[in-house]
Amino acid sequence: MTLLEVENATVRFGGLTALEDVSFRVGQGEIFAVVGPNGAGKSTLFNVISRFCQPASGDVRFEGESVLGHSPSGIAGLGIARTFQNIELFDRTTVLQNLLIGRHTRRRASILPQIVFAPAVRREEIAHRGAVERIIDFLDLHPYRDNAVAGLPYGVRKVVEIGRALSMEPRLILLDEPASGLSVEEAGDMRFWIEDIRAQLGVTVLMVEHNMSLVSAVSDRVMVLADGRIIALGAPREVQSDARVVEAYLGTGTAMR
């Protein structure tokens, strides 16, 4: 079953075409990786899906419904969560607060009951707290629960960001370079987490990643972008041996020598 469908998406920044006529589908429960050299349009693709960037033409459909009519903050309500390449956490709050902000789309109480902290608000808060605790359990974040985010090590911040996205209970999670900047061990942990995100939480994963060993280890399908176009799409093994992919990464003729 198709969860996310990108159809003929084209994005231009002035004269530069960042994405050209990109179409693909991500199935329910799939781990789908997007790879490509720098400037290939991977981040632009993510920004189109999460509505930070308006495509010149084409459509993005989530569960059959176009997302282009939604604001960036409306996307979360549909069930799409994302992380950022350069970690965008709420730095001056605690890990717990960061994860709780992930519950924002699940809130029910309007502002007036919140001001008097009505019993319904308290019940809701306790429920949110419980949901977040499950994420903390899942990602082993216990030692950092009440720590300020700003002081945490890079690797932990990366995990917190994934936790924040997961506490939304999304259907689809967009991971923008989850392993970049991580040590070998941390990247290894990340591999298991990505697999568990699908296996235990049932969340579909769309990720951009440069670490090819991680990509080939976890992903069902890999899409290769170069200069804003799809040059290959398929199982990791097929894609890696694709002549055009080799060319895009290493330059013309290198494969021959």
Binding site: S73, A76, A81, E88, L89, T93, L100, I101, A165
Partner: peptide, 17 residues
Amino acid sequence: RALLAVRDSEISAQAMG
């Protein structure tokens, strides 16, 4: 929490809904 989110990063506040 929404206030804190907007204060610290408007971009990821949006991503959180």
